[in-house]
């Protein structure tokens, strides 16, 4: 399996510096679990950060004299950390979802409370960052999503199956970035359900009667 659609470097850099919003970081980290090349890229960006830290010596103010002694008194009161080992997962559909996302799913994809919205089914995942929507999408084999645009930026990551739109073919691990200028109509490949993680930043909702009407049509 080769991933052919990656997040752009600006997104990877935001992830590496820690500036990326948590919902978008969820998509990027889940993509990275499926894409050794992007992990490699982020490691290189972290190495730049390490070199920046190494070069940060313009601070003339010394550490307080007792800083080390205070630190040792603090750390010796607390035991070292060991990473907890993860329990094995028996459900193959759940086991195929990389961990940063799996930890946030309410159940195995087969057992999630999918809600039908036209030709697609969705499950909203909890998201406490204002302005973002985090959803799992399921498209039946060979079915299309109606033509739509986006209000904000949308990142879509394919986890199972594949879809195509005017910009290309997207399989497991591929990430598509859509901004409000993209007008697309994704169609799932025949033969297998297509399951995706989609995160949208929707900074502004339209208001007013006309706005709500427009909103309704935009709201895919």
């Amino acid at each position: 399996m080769t991933v052919s659609h990656h997040p752009d470097r600006a997104l990877l850099l935001d992830y590496a510096t820690g500036a990326l919003s948590e919902p978008f970081a969820l998509v990027v980290a889940t993509h990275m679990a499926l894409c050794p090349a992007c992990r490699h890229e982020v490691s290189a960006m972290e190495a730049i950060g390490g070199a920046m830290l190494e070069a940060s010596t313009d601070c003339s103010q010394a550490q307080p004299e007792d800083a080390f002694a205070r630190l040792m008194a603090h750390v010796e009161a607390v035991p070292g950390e060991h990473a907890a080992s993860q329990p094995a997962i028996n459900d193959p559909a759940l086991a195929a979802i990389p961990r940063p996302l799996r930890d946030r799913l309410p159940a195995s994809p087969d057992q999630m409370p999918w809600r039908r919205q036209g030709p697609i089914e969705t499950v909203f995942l909890p998201c406490d960052v204002p302005g973002y929507r985090v959803r799992m999408l399921r498209i039946a084999p060979g079915r299309g999503v109606p033509r739509h645009t986006h209000r904000g930026e949308e990142l879509t990551l394919v986890l199972q199956g594949a879809y195509s739109d005017a910009t290309g073919h997207f399989g497991r691990g591929d990430l598509e970035t859509a901004d409000p200028t993209l007008d697309h109509r994704p169609v799932a490949d025949p033969g297998e359900q297509c399951i995706c993680l989609a995160v949208t930043s929707a900074p502004l909702r339209l208001t007013g009667r006309l706005g709500r009407l427009i909103d309704h049509f935009l709201d895919i």
Partner: peptide, 10 residues
């Protein structure tokens, strides 16, 4: 969100 290199799905 972080990648877990020991995760079988990775």
């Amino acid at each position: 969100p972080e990648v877990d290199l020991d995760d079988p799905a990775t």
